[in-house]
Design a protein around this nucleic acid. Structure first.
Lengths: 178, 178
DNA sequence: AATATCATGTAACATGTTACATGATTGG
DNA sequence: CCAATCATGTAACATGTTACATGATATT
């Protein structure tokens, strides 16, 4: 019980933007928060049930038979504000790319180059996706949320550009090694 | 069984640098890989036992009664090289800071500013730590590993600098909002 | 002698994904 | 009518942390 506060926060947050079904919560998180968050059905449905039991959300009849659209109650809004204010527990870092490069001597210079090139092209793809999201946001401005959503996109862009610069530098350094 | 390949990889990698006890493996990962990896005792000791059963590592009598120093066997070296070559399963992203900023409208501009300032000062501290690690590495160069270890430090530095620039930009943007 | 650090190990708990089962509705 | 998508839910599995129990050795 007491499903992860993080999951609770993500779900209450999604429902604070608009009422929706569990399925839609998952899609929303995948498509909108996808660059920095994720939740699976195995987390979402049990958490929705618990939130409802605790009176933080209410179910309305959805557009289909057997489907429910959930809405935040006033208590749910308060709970969301409360969770947002609690300190983030920093997830222990686990970066599989760095773990491999750290043992680059054993892995070999060629394989390291391949990893770096992959990392660079991943970052470039992310940059393109962020550009697309920016365009979407500009077309349909959710006034209150807009500036904050731009903040998170900007973070993704800064990180991606840093990754590209680092990969270029590192590829050059590896070339010099031979 | 079949403890996470990631954990296996981290432990075999640590032992490939030098033979050591389980306790030392944990310390090594905390202090040397700490910026991009972590393992707990609950993972390390069972994994060491399994690696030994599978003949990938060997135990020697440690300096103390009841303690074991583990060394890679030739099979262990092959296994490490094999694991390093396998594709990284990308851990689903979970960035609690971004999750909070995304709901910044509900959280409030003041609290967002505090989060950004904290993020900036964290990044500055990381930069200082990386500078210290660079100095240490320069004093005692592990010839073969050296260039690869620098790669991972450089990644941390690029990321930290990007975080600082992003935080500054975002703080300015939030100020304009009022 | 007391305290800190080195060292091993596990049980209880927390968290999270995957794969499956099930069925309604929509669009071609 | 058939396929894709919407929708709910759970059981089995995988992963990982925390807290505790235990004791040896080093340091002061």
């Amino acid at each position: 019980m007491a499903r992860g506060r993080q999951t609770e926060l993500a779900i209450l947050g999604a429902l604070s933007v608009a009422p929706m079904t569990g399925y839609a919560v998952r899609e929303e998180i995948r498509q909108v928060l996808g660059h920095f968050w994720s939740e699976s059905y195995g987390q979402i449905y049990p958490t929705l049930a618990e939130l409802q039991r605790n009176g933080l959300i209410e179910a309305q009849q959805g557009t289909r038979a057997g489907s429910s659209t959930y809405t935040l109650t006033p208590a749910g809004h308060r709970r969301l504000a409360d969770l947002l204010r609690q300190p983030q527990q920093p997830a222990p870092p686990r970066n599989p790319l760095m773990l491999r490069l750290f043992f680059g001597h054993t892995l070999g210079a060629g394989a390291c180059r391949a990893l770096l090139q992959q990392a660079k092209s991943d970052a470039e793809q992310r940059l393109a996706q962020f550009a697309a999201i920016r365009a979407e946001l500009a077309a349909d401005p959710h006034t209150e949320h807009h500036p904050y959503w731009l903040l998170t996109i900007s973070a993704g862009e800064h990180t991606a550009r840093a990754a590209i610069a680092w990969a270029d530098e590192s590829l050059a350094a590896l070339s010099q090694l031979e």
